[in-house]
Design a protein around this nucleic acid. Structure first.
Lengths: 339, 339
DNA sequence: TGTTTTTATGTAAACGTTTTCATTTATTTT
DNA sequence: AAAATAAATGAAAACGTTTACATAAAAACA
């Protein structure tokens, strides 16, 4: 109950009969403070449990040791892994991690950015929600001196560093694999093509066909929200409408799962009748029967790289912006092996 | 590049030829500010994009609109769901969410608490790491006026509100179910009994046996870290040592998965030869073959309740501490149905 | 009417740092 | 030894709020 607030730099100064300036300098490793005195200050601070006020320091410097992270949602394996990895790197480097979810809403994403700006974060890590097309707020953040870095779902403007997966390559490999397994008409489940990841995966799909000399049929492209339900429904519709297809490549594992469930329910055989491949390598894909082929994105590595690069840009005034592409790894599983 | 910092309360005051005090009052809905003037201030603020500095306000008030959340790790389905739900409630209520992972290390948990304290959070939500036994830091936080609330893995001291699952009930129901299915010797995989959740689940195990008039054999209790690997290894050891058992109830799904994998590898039948049940209802349990019986903990609800209660305690000076127990729901699946 | 109460505004200190500028002390140079 | 330079410290302003206290204006009361 008794709100005992800790000791401050002023208390130390008074006690040691020196000025607050020197005490401050001691903590900030300023060169001009006599070693003996510095030692004395640090010791005193330690025994009296001094903790600097990040608020005061943040207010004065106009910058805090806090980074904001904006993701669509934390209850997706991919994103929670990334957050986990980002947080680990950031705390090690002495930063706090503020998280915000956009829940795939552009308005929420905007208000998240505003919140972060006025919390004086020194950096923002962001993976955009679907359907985001304005980046006014991000530019505002950048203008205020906040370093921004994007990952996974990124824009080309405004110019920031970003870390993405090699979506095209992963998709291409999977589709190539499907074609080589003799599947001829591969349905493609994707989200909006204004989002880079879907656009790139579609390119992979197309390139694979080109490489195999097979003309892709765009009537097999189905845009949906990539949830389990929509995967199920889309598959049902395709089959009900008697559309000819013999495989599905879904840009998300949950919609692949929906497809898997409907196909089994319908009594069709995977991979014999229909092949299925997903994207993201969610844990469950390994344990379905048959297990589901998917594309692993190396979440942990992505989180690490994105956090490290952001810190670099914050701490080295002259660090340059970079774009990193992380290779994707196809996990070949039973759902696509019919030879 | 040009770091254009936003306008402040002082700018507004100057422009409108009034004092900063009134401007401040206008934003804080202080009763004593003339409606017309207030309207004018708010309008001016809006058109000029004024954003209050949470640092300045936090420094002055000794309190921020930030809540710290400490969990063992974010890349566990249970915790990432909870975080997701907590963050949703907190932002809606105007709070920021700072997350920290202890990675099951007591030292890291302690340093997380320290960090949060000196970030002037107004509340801490925590689920302890395994093997934590000191709560000195938590007490320190409480003494500084920070509201603390625990969930899932909790201590009884110091006194705080907490939200837990009905671990005993869930465990009891599962074990009862196993016994009724004719399993007689149920191996029990658990973590340290100093952690409430394992203690309670063990109680459930024992009560179920008592209720069925079966004497439990404590030589079937196996303490491990509940990872997939340890689940696999423990199961292997039990079988290799020829210990008689016909079912496994694991306090974690991943160790249940390890058991499942080894048993299948060994060519034994689930549920005929050996029954398996886990705890946490991880997504994959639904999709293994056979699917794995597990105990659902209603993560989303837990996150919501814990966040709401914390806010209540922060905002209502006279709110009382409470303990909430959320019912668990057993998901009966194929791995335990042998009748 | 004058007096009291209520409402509305202003003044200035405070929160705990960092940092510019000034000053003192120590060291080096001539 | 004096002069010039470097190292070490201090004084005080600044960051952007909130709030206790003082005061002014308006409303209510007598």
């Amino acid at each position: 109950m008794k709100k005992q607030s800790g000791i401050t730099i002023t208390d130390i100064a008074k006690e040691l009969k020196i000025s607050v300036a020197t005490v401050s300098r001691a903590f900030n490793n300023h060169p001009y403070v006599k070693p003996e005195l510095k030692k004395q200050i640090l010791e005193f601070a330690k025994t009296h449990g001094y903790q600097p006020s990040s608020l005061a320091s943040g207010l004065r410097k106009g910058k805090t040791k806090t980074i904001g992270v904006i993701i669509p949602r934390n209850n997706r394996n991919f994103f929670s892994n990334i957050i986990s990895s980002i947080e680990e790197v950031l705390t090690t480097a002495g930063y706090n991690t503020l998280i915000c979810q956009s829940f795939e809403s552009p308005e929420k994403e905007d208000s998240n950015i505003t919140t972060l700006i006025n919390s004086n974060v020194s950096g923002i890590i962001i993976s955009h929600c679907l359907g985001k097309n304005s980046h006014k707020n991000i530019e505002e953040a950048i203008n205020k001196g906040i370093k921004v870095i994007q990952f996974d779902r990124v824009f080309n403007a405004p110019q920031t560093s970003f870390v993405i997966n090699d979506n095209k390559q992963g998709a291409k490999e999977v589709v190539l694999h499907l074609l080589k397994q003799g599947y001829k008409r591969i349905a493609f489940f994707y989200g909006s093509l204004t989002t880079n990841i879907f656009k790139e995966r579609q390119l992979g799909y197309l390139e694979a066909h080109k490489e195999m000399g097979i003309k892709p049929d765009t009537s097999l492209f189905f845009k949906n929200t990539l949830t389990r339900e929509e995967g199920y429904n889309t598959t049902k519709q395709i089959i009900d409408k008697n559309i000819k297809f013999d495989a599905i490549f879904s840009c998300g594992d949950y919609s692949a799962l929906g497809a898997y469930l409907y196909i089994k329910e319908r009594g069709l055989k995977i991979p014999e009748d229909i092949g299925i491949a997903g994207f993201a390598d969610e844990p469950f894909t390994e344990f379905t029967t048959p297990s589901i082929t998917s594309v692993n994105q190396n979440d942990k590595e992505m989180g690490r790289l994105v956090a490290e690069q952001l810190i670099r840009e914050i701490e080295n005034e002259k660090s340059t912006q970079i774009q990193i592409t992380i290779p994707t790894i196809v996990k070949y599983r039973e759902s696509t092996q019919r030879l």
